[in-house]
């Protein structure tokens, strides 16, 4: 306990809480992308047989939680804390889903950065001893997000060259105290930055400075370089936002290098009609819970840095002509060598 917990603006989780299981559920569009083999479940009908997309999104979230608990061989009663968030007004998906579980619940909103925001809160609570087992969950749904932030689904609208496509799906992570293989070692909480981007079709450019700021502080605080990590996964910047991020990091003298992937650009790589990539709370969540976690369990990756990015706008603020503030939260994950035998 004597170990330093706050390093500059970053956090170190001294007890090394671990992600012990994940659950990922996606819709049909995501299954067409290159990450499909890493998801636990693919649902062919994005509406999941429900009458409204909002209800369908809750089904996705509930499935993700149940799969994660099943993978961890836990019952809902074993969970001491649940944290979660989504894109819908008043985070109704998370709140309504949490009502189905006995665990105490903290609702979070960080737009598409909620995935790592939740993981930081869960890891900190477990690290501090307030919970032995915590679940962090996030979801998004193309149709529910589209009708809340943009237009009716059947409207004749031409996608812009910089538009992103909301990922339909949900990702849940079980964070537990004690020896687990994939440890949550450090985190850097993002600062909200607004560099004056007003076009709601340019979420990547709006979020890239926040990602750059968080990455830069993370490396500076911990005395690391991008090469320290086998994978640096940013959340839903898309291909345009990613190239801006690379330039911003180069200008600051910390080039990101080849280890960087963007979950938004990656999840829909080669899928037509998805613009410059995916977005939404589920985008980073299913990439982290699917690809990153499973590759770490398989010892294919030993250190990963996940930086989920969020654009903190509402449909009211952009109609009122306001620019888009953004935030990015980083979480460092590391494979614990000694845990290989115990797990």
């Amino acid at each position: 306990m004597g170990e330093q917990r706050r390093i500059g603006s970053s956090l170190r989780f001294a007890s090394r809480p671990a992600i012990v299981a994940t659950g990922t559920v996606v819709g049909p569009m995501e299954a067409k992308g290159p990450l499909t083999q890493w998801f636990d479940t693919v649902v062919d009908d994005a509406m999941y047989g429900e009458r409204t997309p909002e209800k369908a999104e809750r089904r996705f979230m509930q499935d993700a939680i149940d799969i994660a608990l099943g993978n961890a061989s836990l019952q809902p009663e074993n969970v001491h804390l649940m944290v979660g968030g989504d894109l819908l007004n008043q985070i109704v998906t998370s709140a309504f889903t949490a009502a189905k579980y006995p665990a105490p619940f903290l609702g979070l909103y960080g737009a598409c950065s909620t995935c790592t925001e939740g993981l930081i809160v869960a890891a900190a609570m477990v690290d501090a001893g307030y919970a032995d087992i915590a679940v962090s969950v996030t979801s998004s749904h193309y149709q529910s997000a589209e009708r809340q932030f943009r237009y009716p689904i059947e409207l004749n609208i031409q996608r812009k060259a910089t538009s992103q496509y909301t990922v339909t799906g949900a990702g849940a992570m079980v964070v537990a105290r004690g020896a687990g293989k994939v440890a949550v070692t450090e985190a850097t909480i993002g600062r909200v930055l607004d560099l004056g981007i007003k076009d709601p079709n340019q979420m990547g450019p709006a979020m890239a400075p926040a990602a750059a700021d968080t990455l830069f502080r993370h490396f500076a605080d911990l005395g690391r370089t991008p090469e320290y990590y086998d994978l640096i996964l940013t959340g839903d910047l898309g291909s345009v936002g990613s190239s801006i991020l690379h330039e911003l990091m180069r200008k600051r003298g910390v080039p990101l290098g080849d280890a960087h992937r963007d979950s938004g650009a990656w999840i829909f790589q080669g899928v037509p009609g998805t613009g410059v990539g995916g977005s939404g709370c589920a985008c980073a969540a299913v990439t982290l819970g699917g690809y990153v976690f499973k590759q770490m369990m398989a010892n294919e990756l030993s250190r990963a840095l996940v930086v989920a990015t969020g654009a903190l706008l509402s449909s009211l603020t952009w109609q009122q002509g306001e620019s888009v503030p953004a935030v990015a939260h980083a979480v460092a994950l590391e494979v614990q060598p000694q845990a290989a035998a115990t797990s």
Binding site: P152, I153, E154, L155, N156, I157, Q158, R159, G273
Partner: peptide, 28 residues
């Protein structure tokens, strides 16, 4: 909406685009 995705203003400006906005909103 596929016509709209392909043709942009070519689908939005004609009266057919106007009707689409009303029906799409009603369905949604």
């Amino acid at each position: 909406h596929h016509v709209g995705e392909f043709a942009g203003a070519g689908a939005a400006v004609p009266i057919t685009g106007f009707a689409n906005t009303i029906v799409a909103a009603a369905m949604d």
